[in-house]
Design a protein around this nucleic acid. Structure first.
Length: 577
DNA sequence: GCCGTTTTCGGCCCGACTGTTTTCAGTCG
């Protein structure tokens, strides 16, 4: 798969072009960055796109025109790219590595090369150690310090953090701001509000006229490790959890504009802003303005979208995946909401197990958050590390469920189920008879992740065709950050699921979120139902459902496609069919 | 270099903060 290689190359070309002083160069920079974004976020291998559809297929991709498509073709055919090599000869430095450092961009990197011979991270380290940078023209003590700090940061904490780890911290800070009495409103914006599975930083917006007091309060919070930048409208800090966090304090008249601006991803905002321009307005982070510069008095971001003639959509959809165009035509269907979820279709609950709570506390916790039912789906015998049960043990366990259901007296219903291992050959880890006695069976792959694609596909499809499973658990097997999805032909899985009336799971564990948003978009082209499961092993983990719902919303999934939006009688009818 | 129910040419989103300056360049989002 060349996607990452090519995306990196195009980003590096963009960095090198940003050193070019021709007036049109900065637009070329943007073009290359956009192409890198497109290719980097594609699911399908770019070389497959090319193999199947040739240049025409490449030109279909957003931000890819004749020039860049030509470079892609050249790279696929020859393994080289003339444009890249030409620029690399002019700027023989590790642009990707150096500009990966916070505060160090292409121009400064090149200045370091010209003056000090810095060409990569190791030579940069030497220059830092010799304190040569501060003496350069255009640099100073502070810039040297900043580069050193940026380098330390990079080495300490590479990359992004799971939404499930970051969002609760952000929401805690918002809570503290609200309780301070200094703000009239506050919220988490940015990629966390869009429920992206990982976030690179946090954006918090506060509505207040007392910016200096709010900033002072903010930098005193215990979550904060150090201050990166402090200004009247924006303060940037490093949090102890290893993530940067920006707080913006915004007065009332600009708040709606800021919420809109700091929620959508960059491309979404560009699309919306272009619509604003086409209607004679200007849209920026302060709000919507007419030609005379008069602000449109929006109370909420809904007002702004309405004024622009764009159907309002939830944050999760604002990713520039075609939502703006549809919303202009009022054709966007609203996705499922957390309150639509009536039950949980993947949970664990066992006595005498270190990593799992017992069934009764699990049932009480589920009841407390308002669920009407949940499927108890414990592991099966092949999964020894999780105390997987055999047929006999399930039989006994179900007697326990019957008793507990009686005791719960209809306040919540526990469905009998299992998360049955799909074994190497596609057979299932329990006897047919046992599986047939269950209400709800999740079939999951937990072993031999390195099978060839064809074999893995056959394995899962065979399980789907067994007629014994209700849904495929975490269908791609990925676990963030370390484990990639196993190789599997998902289209074949979707086809089999469609024709065998088997659902696909959206596993809501923050490190799984599997299927993910783009998988869901692809899968929902088929006539498939989806099941959401928290995969809770402990009582607080029922709350993971919100991440599953967020992922479903990012995949534009409507509630009628999701089994656990049904109430209990409907689910029981569905199951019996 | 890309793109088009305003255009196949002439546009391309926009502002905050910092550091090193004395009006601005670089970086970031």
């Amino acid at each position: 798969m060349y996607n990452k290689i090519l995306a990196d190359m195009f980003n590096e070309i963009a960095a090198m072009l940003s050193l070019d002083d021709r007036p049109t160069a900065r637009f070329e920079v943007r073009a290359y960055q956009k192409a890198a974004m497109t290719i980097g976020s594609m699911q399908e291998a770019i070389e497959d796109v090319y193999r199947k559809g040739g240049m025409a297929a490449l030109l279909e991709l957003p931000g890819i025109g004749k020039g860049i498509a030509g470079s892609i073709e050249e790279y696929i055919k020859t393994g080289k790219m003339e444009k890249y090599q030409y620029l690399k000869k002019m700027y023989p430095i590790d642009m990707k590595g150096l500009t990966g450092i916070q505060g160090l961009g292409a121009r400064k990197a090149f200045a370091l090369y010209k003056n000090l011979g810095v060409k990569d991270i190791p030579t940069l380290k030497k220059a830092l150690a010799a304190h040569k940078i501060a003496k350069l023209e255009g640099f100073g003590e502070k810039s040297e310090e900043m580069i050193q700090k940026g380098l330390d940061l990079l080495e300490r904490s590479a990359g992004r953090m799971l939404l499930g780890d970051a969002l609760p911290v952000a929401e805690g800070i918002v809570q503290e701001l609200k309780e301070s009495g200094l703000v009239d409103d506050a919220l988490v914006a940015g990629s966390a509000r869009r429920m992206r599975e990982t976030v690179g930083d946090l954006d918090i917006l506060a509505l207040s006229e007392k910016s200096d007091k709010v900033m002072k309060f903010f930098i005193g919070l215990s979550e904060i490790e150090s201050i990166i930048a402090e200004g009247p409208t924006k303060t940037a800090v490093r949090l102890k959890i290893g993530l940067n966090c920006d707080l913006r304090v915004i007065p009332f008249e600009n708040f709606a504009g800021a919420v809109q601006y700091f929620t959508g991803n960059k491309d979404h905002n560009v699309e919306v802003r272009k619509i604003a321009i086409s209607k004679g307005y200007k849209l920026n982070e302060y709000g919507l303005f007419d030609k005379k510069g008069k602000i449109f008095p929006a109370k909420t971001e809904e007002d702004i979208y309405a004024k622009l003639g764009i159907q309002f959509m939830p944050p999760e959809m604002r990713e520039a995946r075609g939502e703006v165009k549809l919303a202009q035509q009022n054709l966007l269907k609203m996705p499922v909401e957390l309150k639509d979820i009536k039950g949980d279709l993947h949970t664990h609950g066992l006595d005498n197990n270190n990593s799992t709570d017992s069934l009764e506390p699990m049932a009480n916790a589920a009841m407390k958050i308002g669920l009407k039912y949940f499927a108890s789906t414990n592991h099966t015998k092949s999964l020894r590390v999780e105390n997987g049960m055999n047929d006999k043990q399930f039989e006994k366990f179900f007697i326990q469920i019957d008793k507990l259901n009686k005791k719960l007296d209809g306040k919540i219903r526990i469905l009998k189920g299992a998360e049955v291992d799909i074994l190497k050959d596609g057979s299932l880890d329990l006897e047919d008879k046992t599986l047939r006695s269950m209400d709800w069976v999740v079939g999951s792959v937990h072993s031999l992740f390195n099978m060839p694609e064809a074999e893995m596909t056959k394995r899962v499809v065979k399980a789907i065709e067994s007629g014994l499973i209700s849904t495929v658990g975490h269908p791609t097997g990925r676990e963030m950050p370390a484990r990639d999805a196993y190789k599997i032909n998902l289209d074949k899985v979707y086809e089999a699921a469609e024709s065998n009336n088997v659902a696909l799971e959206i596993n809501a564990q923050p490190r799984r979120l599997d299927l993910n948003d783009t998988n869901i978009m692809n899968a929902s082209k088929y006539k498939i139902k989806f099941s959401l499961g928290s995969d809770a092993h402990r009582t607080p983990q029922f709350a993971y459902m919100r991440y599953g719902v967020g992922t479903a919303r990012r995949g534009w999934l409507t509630k009628d496609r999701i089994i656990n939006t049904m109430d209990l009688p409907s689910v029981l009818r569905y199951i019996s069919k």
